[in-house]
């Protein structure tokens, strides 16, 4: 500590502030898929307004307290000829000051917080309501007219969007940070959420309540479409799957039934595929991601997924109970996987 003796405390403090602030400001990026500081909806913007007020108060108090502490430590460090310092036991005026000033700061924080809490609470009456069901480990979405999809949730950009949140098994939490703050999903009750989109685009989301060993792989995408694109996507779910065009697709179509996939998956237009245990696969070929938004939807990833889903999403119900994964005699051959991939990719 000897070399510190020649440093002037005030210079050191100035240096600290100058170095620290830009570092702090540059450390979080608004480009990250799950960024919490780049709101793209009214609700997310309200939350961000609340956050910023508190953040700057916190930065101010942080700099004040740490500066004071550093100053005191340097200024009052023991010197060789120090005697016993004055024995001060307290000071009532100061006690009152440092009780009241923090209390005032807290009131300044509490008021915008209360405003925001009530502002974002009620789902507007005109909201477009989508039913969300959390499963271990994927998301199911049901639209007002009965269309069902999974993990890639399209919404129209021209009106408030509301969600009723339920779970098929354990607790989950629904979160697309650029659009809304998280809301837990609790068995036995229906929680709600809402937001009004501000821009079109893809927004990433993830389950944020620990829900078992593949909690990390329970992701989703919310896609804000223009009203016309959304309408045609929605009606596409209702229209039957296209007629088989290639031998591979035909073979995959048949395997989807003979290998038992139909027991758990629904594909609109197929009377034999009406299972509801697994994700609805209607329009699967149009999806950008697969396995609950953990992988890009391309031939390579889809092949890997069908080959060994356990490797990609440990503990998932398909690899633990579907006969093709539990009974070696029924396992998919590489040729079969090729045809299944072709079939699934044809679902557009």
């Amino acid at each position: 500590m000897a070399n510190l003796k020649n440093i002037r405390p005030k210079a050191l403090l100035g240096l600290l502030v100058i170095v620290l602030l830009p570092i702090l400001a540059a450390c979080s990026s608004t480009d990250n898929p799950l960024t919490t500081i780049s709101p793209k909806s009214d609700v997310a913007r309200d939350i961000h307004w609340n956050y910023q007020i508190i953040f700057w108060f916190a930065v101010f108090v942080f700099i004040f307290v740490e500066t004071l502490l550093l100053y005191a430590v340097i200024k009052f460090r023991r010197r060789p000829n120090d005697g016993i310092p004055k024995q001060v036991h307290g000071n009532t005026a100061m006690e009152i000051t440092w009780t009241i000033i923090p209390a005032l700061i807290l009131i300044a924080i509490a008021i915008p917080t209360w405003i925001t809490i009530f502002e974002i609470d009620d789902v507007p009456d005109d909201a477009y309501m989508i039913e969300i069901v959390g499963h271990q480990w994927w998301w199911e979405a049901t639209y007002p007219d009965g269309q069902v999809t999974a993990n890639e949730i399209h919404v129209p950009s021209d009106r408030p969007i509301g969600f009723n949140l339920n779970t098929a098994d354990v607790l989950h939490s629904f979160w697309v940070p650029q659009l809304f703050g998280k809301q837990d999903i609790i068995p036995g009750r229906t929680n709600t959420l809402w937001f009004t989109p501000e821009v079109e685009g893809r927004f990433f989301g993830q389950c944020v309540e620990f829900c078992g060993i593949s909690h990390a792989n329970m992701r989703l995408e919310m896609i804000v479409d223009s009203p016309t694109v959304f309408a045609s996507w929605l009606s596409g779910i209702d229209s039957p799957a296209p007629a088989a065009v290639s031998p591979a697709v035909v073979a995959g179509h048949d395997l989807f039934a003979s290998k038992g996939c139909v027991a758990c998956h629904t594909i609109s237009g197929r009377n034999d595929a009406v299972g509801i245990i697994g994700p609805n696969l209607s329009l699967f070929g149009e999806r950008l991601t697969l396995a609950s938004a953990t992988l890009d939807n391309n031939t390579e990833n889809l092949t890997a997924w069908l080959k060994d889903p356990e490797d990609i999403k440990p503990g998932n119900i398909m690899s633990e109970s579907a006969p093709i994964y539990t009974n070696p005699d029924l396992a998919l051959t590489n040729a079969e996987i090729v045809t299944l991939v072709a079939y699934l990719q044809s679902l557009k």
Partner: peptide, 29 residues
């Protein structure tokens, strides 16, 4: 002294979480 410096940071982020609406973005992160 290190305790005061570090605990202050934890205390301040604690106040940030006390703001429930803002906490909706920070909870479980």
């Amino acid at each position: 002294i290190g305790f005061i410096a570090l605990f202050t940071i934890g205390g301040l982020s604690g106040v940030m979480h006390a703001a429930a609406s803002s906490d909706a973005q920070q909870q479980d992160t």
